[in-house]
């Protein structure tokens, strides 16, 4: 592998922080491999987003603003990516580890006969080979996985694993030719955005998570949201809170929910069951507010404050707001 290709996931030109993290990292890896850093942006809004990407240290941004990309489910996007990879030659393809990122990765594994390393938090070049580091089994093991084929390899990368840093001399923007002779079967009849404008949980630098100890839906709005806003973070939840219908499942953190690794995780009224722990244990700093000092969360928190969330959290929010003012 010589080059690095970033698959840019976006919606009508709006993308997430992970895109810029990958663009930054692509340059660093390409430099070690002695190749070039590319990005591929497809579908409605691609041209506008490509402009924004030129602020990052990429060599080439490939664009195809083709309506088929949004009309058909992923098939045209996979065709474009395959074509871009074959044109670039031996490459490591970086894909965000998201729902659709995993689909793209799987499809390219078969198309390119490539290996895939999943949920990658670090990439090392060892003797010309690409080695990917991933926390596995809920973070119980940190594995290093080498991508064997010399031509193509794929890494699905965890958001927040790398820093995003603008720079470089400004990438060239090139238009991708439409792969010929393709037909597409899965038609997207409608595409609905929910909860727009909110910070993606996986990308938030701070996560304020609530559990059964909050007793209902209302404290998520009145207690957690103001604290999250004050700290520039997002609200998350335990499964108990999601199961009770207090928050949508999209906020659930843990084994059957999302995996987050923010700088700061504050668990409020969450006991810290193993299935919750595996989704947040790699957070840099963990603070817990819990009535019970013996709750399992105390075993892996940096600070546990024993007490009533309803008394502590509003005071904390006030202190932070005052410090910011």
């Amino acid at each position: 592998m010589k080059n690095v290709i970033v698959y840019v996931e976006h919606r009508h030109g709006a993308t997430r922080k992970v895109t810029f993290e990958l663009a930054t990292q692509a340059h660093a890896i390409a430099e070690q491999l002695g190749g070039k850093a590319h990005a591929v942006v497809l579908g409605a809004g691609a041209a506008r987003l490509a402009e924004a990407l030129t602020a990052y240290p990429l060599d080439v941004v490939h664009v195809a603003e083709d309506a088929d990309v949004d009309t058909y489910l992923l098939d045209p996007a996979v065709d474009y990516l395959e074509a871009a990879a074959r044109a670039a030659g031996p490459s490591l393809i970086l894909i965000p580890n998201t729902l659709s990122g995993r689909d793209v990765a799987g499809r390219l594994v078969a198309r390119l006969g490539a290996g895939v390393a999943a949920d990658v938090v670090d990439v090392k070049i060892e003797g010309g080979r690409v080695a990917c580091v991933s926390p596995k089994m809920g973070g119980a093991e940190i594995t290093t996985c080498v991508l064997k084929p010399a031509d193509f390899g794929i890494a699905t990368v965890r958001p927040n694993a790398f820093a995003a840093q603008p720079g470089g001399a400004g990438a060239a923007i090139e238009t991708l030719a439409k792969p010929a002779g393709k037909s597409y079967a899965a038609v997207v009849d409608s595409d609905v955005e929910e909860g727009s404008g909110e910070l993606a949980l996986e990308e938030a630098p701070v996560v304020i998570a609530g559990g059964r100890g909050l007793g209902g839906a209302e404290p998520f709005d009145t207690l957690l949201k103001p604290l999250a806003e004050a700290l520039g973070g997002a609200v998350g939840a335990s499964r108990a809170a999601a199961d009770a219908g207090w928050v949508p499942y999209s906020l659930q953190i843990g084994q059957t929910g999302k995996t987050v690794s923010p700088n700061l995780y504050i668990a409020i009224g969450i006991s810290g069951a193993i299935q919750h722990k595996v989704g947040m244990r790699s957070s840099s700093t963990i603070v817990a507010v819990n009535k019970d000092g013996q709750a399992p969360i105390a075993e892996f928190s940096d600070l546990v404050v024993v007490g009533d969330a309803f008394k502590i959290v509003p005071e904390l929010t006030k202190l932070i707001q005052a410090a910011k003012a």
């Binding site: 594994v109 996985c145 991508l147 064997k148 075993e299 024993v306 008394k311 509003p314 005071e315």
Partner: peptide
């Protein structure tokens, strides 16, 4: 197409401070 070359447990996260304050 992949080869697991190394694995290790994550760095241990020491048990932190537990505080029981007087009030909120």
């Amino acid at each position: 197409k992949t080869e697991l070359v190394a694995f290790a447990p994550p760095p241990v996260r020491g048990k932190g401070r537990i505080e029981t304050p007087e009030d909120g």
